[in-house]
Design a protein around this nucleic acid. Structure first.
Ligand code: ZN
Ligand code: ZN
Ligand code: ZN
Ligand code: ZN
Lengths: 133, 133
DNA sequence: ACGCTTGTTGAGAACCGATGTCAAAGATCT
DNA sequence: AGATCTTTGACATCGGTTCTCAACAAGCGT
């Protein structure tokens, strides 16, 4: 089993995620870190994010263009997101209704090891206002 | 507006999709066509699939590894899928409950242009049996 | 404090799905 | 058949992500 050493880089990534409320890509995060002086190699950012995701410390979702987006969510339990396509602003959602529906439907078809992907995308009020100007 | 000429290649892609009940990647489709002698260039397969997707003739979804998968579904109306991770076997799902839930939740947060991604993944009965052997 | 051991870093290469390039091929019309 | 103009396909290119491996540094025992 790994030792999981605490390094400057890993700390920097976690701290940056804690300060950001929105879903961000690995490259955006890399740029953010470079901008604030806490420079971290891109490969390291990817590795840190992957480790955090494996440990369920961050949530990962795929943007419509295929890029992976990361976020340190408030709740650790299973939940879903409503995300702004433009700015990444995120609202955490939980839908007991949907959870029940999903597992029932899948089981009825004889499927096992069921997982579900449920994400909502939209344009937030701020981005709509900015676009209208 | 485009002329949309009927070519051997385009026909071959559509026919292959009609015979396949499961979600397939562009590369898988390209290989399938080559194997049955109806060889079609990879770029052309991508273009045909994209055109079909734009015309809502095929559904597209992203596998967990990010690859795009295509399928010619029975119903044209909006719906979702329960897909086997192993073999791609697919069951079309529609959930009026979920549709209502999704739009209500997003609207309540002041988001516009709402879209949702809802896909169920599992292991089908056949693949489970095969794995247990 | 000081090495030693071993996990970690990072610049660049490699990878891979997807898209762009552009001359040759062929579908449609006259 | 001939003119027109979309489509094709081998190949180059792109962009996000992962791999490589020598240099580096955490943590530990002394
Ligand atoms: Zn859920
Ligand atoms: Zn926004
Ligand atoms: Zn299966
Ligand atoms: Zn729906």
């Amino acid at each position: 089993m790994a030792a999981a050493r605490m390094t400057r880089q890993r700390t920097a990534v976690v701290e940056a995620l804690d300060e950001l409320a929105d879903f961000r890509s690995a490259q955006q995060l890399h740029e953010t870190l470079r901008a604030r002086g806490e420079s971290v190699g891109l490969a390291t950012v990817y590795r840190a994010l992957q480790a955090l995701a494996d440990a369920s410390e961050v949530d990962v979702l795929r943007a419509e263009d295929g890029e992976s987006l990361y976020r340190r969510c408030a709740r650790r339990e299973h939940h879903h997101h409503l995300v702004c396509r433009q700015c990444g602003r995120t609202v955490e959602i939980d839908g007991p209704t949907v959870e029940a529906w999903a597992s029932k439907v899948a089981a009825a078809q004889g499927f096992d090891d069921i997982e579900h992907t449920i994400e909502l995308w939209g344009t937030c009020a701020d981005c709509r206002a900015a676009a209208a100007r």
